[in-house]
Design a protein around this nucleic acid. Sequence first.
DNA 1: TTGTATGCGTTATCAT
DNA 2: ATGATAACGCATACAA
Lengths: 344, 344
Amino acid sequence: MSTEKEVTIYDIARKLNISSATVSRALNDDPVVSKKTKQKIFDLAEQMGYRTNLFARNLRNNRTNTIGVIIPRINSFFMSSVISGMEKVANQSGYNLIISQSSESVEKEIKNVKTLYNSRVDGLLVSLAYDTIDTSHFDVFFKMRLPLIFFDRVVEHEHATNIIIDNRKKAYEATQHLIDQGCRRILHVTAIPRQTVYVERLAGYKQALADHNIKFKEDYVIINDLSHRAGIETAAIIQAMNTMPDAVFVSNDDCAIGCMIALKKAGIRIPDDIAFVGFNNDPISTIVEPNLTTIDYPGYEMGVVAANNLINHLHLNGVAPIHTTNTIIIRSELIIRASSLKRK
Amino acid sequence: MSTEKEVTIYDIARKLNISSATVSRALNDDPVVSKKTKQKIFDLAEQMGYRTNLFARNLRNNRTNTIGVIIPRINSFFMSSVISGMEKVANQSGYNLIISQSSESVEKEIKNVKTLYNSRVDGLLVSLAYDTIDTSHFDVFFKMRLPLIFFDRVVEHEHATNIIIDNRKKAYEATQHLIDQGCRRILHVTAIPRQTVYVERLAGYKQALADHNIKFKEDYVIINDLSHRAGIETAAIIQAMNTMPDAVFVSNDDCAIGCMIALKKAGIRIPDDIAFVGFNNDPISTIVEPNLTTIDYPGYEMGVVAANNLINHLHLNGVAPIHTTNTIIIRSELIIRASSLKRK
DNA sequence: TTGTATGCGTTATCAT
DNA sequence: ATGATAACGCATACAA
C-alpha cells in the first residue's frame, strides 16, 4: 500500500494525448464527447484513482452542494430523527449537510449563521433557538438570495418557507380530549410563548377551553424550559395548589414524564387523580407507566420534507429567493394512551 | 435590502491602491504587514462585507477544515450525544462536520467513505456498521495518509486510533453484580459477536461466570439485533424455557426494556423473579419501572475525545499517518438501580 | 514592508 | 467531436 499522488484531468489528458477540456467534458458526461473517447477516459480515470477536486469545481461554479443546518440541540429523539431524515435526502441527491447547534442561544445562532455563510452553503435549514426573536442575522442569506427554510421553531418571513405541524389544532385536540374525559381543571405546561410553536399551542388550549365553556385561568399556565427536571418542579407546584388540577397538558414528553413520575412518587394516581397529555411521541412515552398520551410529531418526515424542499428549490433555480411565504404543514396525530383515560 | 456582489481581495486592494498580496497577508494576520495597513484593510473588508472564498483557499492549501463522520445511525441517545460532543469541539476549532449514516450496512458505509473521500475531508471519525468485517474500503484514507479514528464499534488497524470503553471489564462487572445478588442462571442478550464490542462483552460475561464457578451454557446467550422489538421476542423465549433464568444482562437498554415490559405484562416480577442489567444508560433506563441498572456509556465525552484527538493530530501534523495503534479508553460506570436489586 | 507573478484544478467560451 | 485558453480567488516564492 503506497502513498498516492493526486491525479488531475491534465494527467489523464496527457496520457491519452487529448486535451483537458475533453476529459472534463467526458467526466461530466457531456453528450458531445464520443462514446469511444468517453470510455477510454472513464477507464483511465478509474485506473489512476482520479477524484474530482471539488474546490476547483466549486471555485468555478460558485456552488458547494452543501446545506447548512442550524438546530437548538441535536440530542433529543425528535431532533435526531429530523437530522436522520435530512441526511438521507441530502445523501441521495449528492448534497452534504453541515450541522451546527445553537445550544438554544441567539448569540451562538448568530455565530453559526456567519460560519455557514462563510462556508458558502447553498441553503439553510433552521430551527430557531429558544430565545431568538429578532432574525436579522439571517439577512445575509436573503441578500445573497440563498434559500432558507425554517422548521419546527419558525418565524414568519417573506423570503422563507416554514415547515411546521398545526400546533394550534393539535393542542386543541389534546385539550378537548382531556375535556372529553371529564376533566375541567386542566393545566398547561409550556415554554415562554415567544416562539410560534408555544404561542400556537397555548392558543389551541385556550380555544378548546372557551369552546367548552371552561373559564381560562392565568395561573393554570405554567412556564418553564420543558426539561425533565422542570417537570419534577412542576409536580411540586401542582401539589402545593389549593385545588389540584385534574389534568395536565405538557408541551413535551420529557417534561410531562418528569412530572408524572414525581407525582406518582407522592402517591397521586395517574390518570385517576390527574390525567396527562404530552407532546412529541418520544419513545419514552411508551415506557413510562401509565403510557403517555401524546401528539405524534414525525421528525424524520419533517427532515425529509425540509431537505427535499430546499434541494428542489436549488435545482429549479439556483439564484432566485423563495418569494412567497410558503408554509408546509406536516400531518400529526393525537395518540391516546393510558395516561389520559379516566375510568368512567 | 439589496442583493450584494461578492467581494474579493482584489476589490479591497484596488480601493486602497495596494496589492492583493498585501491584502491576503493582512487578512491572514501575517505579522509582516504593518499595523496601519492591516487596520485599513480590516476596516474596508468589514465595510465591504468581504468573506474569504474557502474554495480558492482550499484549492491553494489542499485542506478543507472538514471532518467526516460515519455512524450506523444517528437516532439513538448515545449516538446523538456523540455527535453533539464532536460538533462542539469541531466548532470551537473552526472545523466543520460532515455526518453520514451507514444505516448499519457495509455497502452504504463503502459509499459514504467514497463520498467523504471525494469531499476531501481532512480526517475521518467512524463507528462501524453492524455487518462490517472487512475494512479495506478505508484503505484510500490510509493511502493518502489521512487520519482515521474509530470509536465505539472499532477494529484493530495499525494506522488507526480506537476510542472505546472497556467493554469486557464492564460486562464482567455487570455480571458479577448479578452474581452478587444471588443470581446463578444469568442470560446474556447481545448482538452477533462480530463487532469487537459484542465479543468483548460476551468474554466479560463468560469470565465472570467462570470466576464464580458458574458453568457457561451456550443456550443462555441469545443473539438478536438489540432492538426494542427484539427485547419483546426475547421475553417470549425466556417464558418458553424449562427453567427460567433469574437474571438477564442485555447489551443495550432499549432491548432490555422491551424485554422487561413484556415480562411484566406476563406477570413476572422484576427484579424478584428476574433481575435486569442493560447497557448505555439511555434516559429511558430511569423511566422504566423498576429503573434499569445499566452501564453508563458517556457518548458526549466520547465525541469530544474523538474529535479532539483527530484535530490535535491534524494540527500537529497534517500529513503523517497515525502510526502506532493507539487505544483510548473512556471511563464508564455500572449504575445500580432497582431492576437488579434482589430483596434478601 | 510591499509588490509581481504564478499556479492550484476545474469549467466555459470560442475556435477549429 | 475536440482543442486552446481564460477565469474563478487565493497564497506564496521571489523580487524590490
